[in-house]
């Protein structure tokens, strides 16, 4: 047989995954809706707003809107990545793609790696395009180009990877919708947890609650859970802090990015182990 020297099945499967996802009408519609929403923020840059009797200039508003949009897009794309991932194994099974691929000399880990990479690249592209729109709008309105936006976007892609790996793994064990809801729950808890933590450590809260000395040292169980929880929200906050050059103080045992990457490793391990034992039909 005259086979290609450097035939890499991962690249081929990745290519097919991207092609299959992009041709889905629901994907295109979802993308257009998101892009339209992002374009709507354009109106926020035009006028000067009055807040507490002070006139805020367009520049300040622009910055604020840009950062808020960054957060919303990153969170929304995380949700979309979970949605895209939850049906992928079932669809491949139902359409005979799994049995077609795995009847060839292709290892299961190669198939799973290609699927994961494909989904990750697709959702990253989705997020980068939406973030680029914001970048473009900010540039037009405030004449400042915040290219660190795209770098921050790349950092947030670790969240996408975690969500994809986790949903893929859980979709092998649970009904897909439950798998999706579980990861949605994990993400929501991460955002709410950070919100509560920030509120409880704000100066006002500190002043209201007279804490006895030594209180900070004793860890309660929910603090332990909070420190160990996947830090999806903190990664986003870190990324936005990088955009505006603010200092970012993190809580937990390790840096949020390290936390999320460690969770990615764990999920990847579980996913590969579980898929090895999967019956292919």
């Amino acid at each position: 047989m005259n086979l290609q020297k450097a035939h890499n099945p991962i690249l081929s499967i990745l290519k097919y995954t991207l092609a299959d996802e992009i041709q889905h009408k629901s994907f295109i519609v979802l993308f257009l809706i998101c892009a339209a929403f992002v374009f709507l923020t354009r109106g926020c840059y035009n006028d000067n707003f009055v807040m507490n009797g002070q006139v805020l200039n367009a520049q300040a508003i622009g910055w604020f809107v840009s950062k808020a949009s960054f957060h919303v897009i990153a969170a929304a794309v995380t949700l979309i990545a979970a949605l895209l991932s939850m049906r992928i194994f079932r669809r491949d099974r139902d359409e005979g793609i799994q049995s077609c691929i795995l009847a060839k000399p292709i290892a299961r880990w190669q198939y799973v790696a290609a699927k994961t990479l494909g989904l990750w690249m697709l959702s990253l592209l989705f997020m980068l395009v939406l973030h680029s729109i914001i970048l473009f709008i900010t540039l037009l309105n405030t004449k400042t180009a915040i290219f660190s936006f795209l770098f921050a976007s790349l950092l947030c892609s670790s969240n996408l990877l975690f969500v994809i790996l986790a949903v893929l793994f859980l979709s092998l064990l649970l009904p897909e919708v439950i798998a999706f809801l579980c990861i949605l729950g994990v993400s929501i808890v991460s955002y709410i947890g950070d919100g509560i933590y920030a509120a409880s450590h704000s100066q006002m809260a500190q002043a209201m609650v007279h804490q006895p000395q030594g209180y900070e040292q004793s860890l309660t169980w929910w603090q332990v859970v909070y420190y160990l929880w996947p830090k999806l929200s903190a990664v986003q906050q870190w990324a936005t802090a990088l955009i505006s050059g603010e200092t970012f103080r993190w809580t937990g045992l390790v840096h949020p990015l390290v936390n999320v990457l460690l969770y990615c490793l764990l999920m990847a391990f579980l996913l590969f182990m579980r898929f090895e034992r999967e019956d292919i039909v």
């Binding site: 299959d20 359409e95 290892a107």
Partner: peptide, 19 residues
Amino acid sequence: TACRNAIGYLAENHRMPPH
């Protein structure tokens, strides 16, 4: 995986991606 070199397989109730 090497054992599946040069195997042609037709599954019971063969399916294809509809698109």
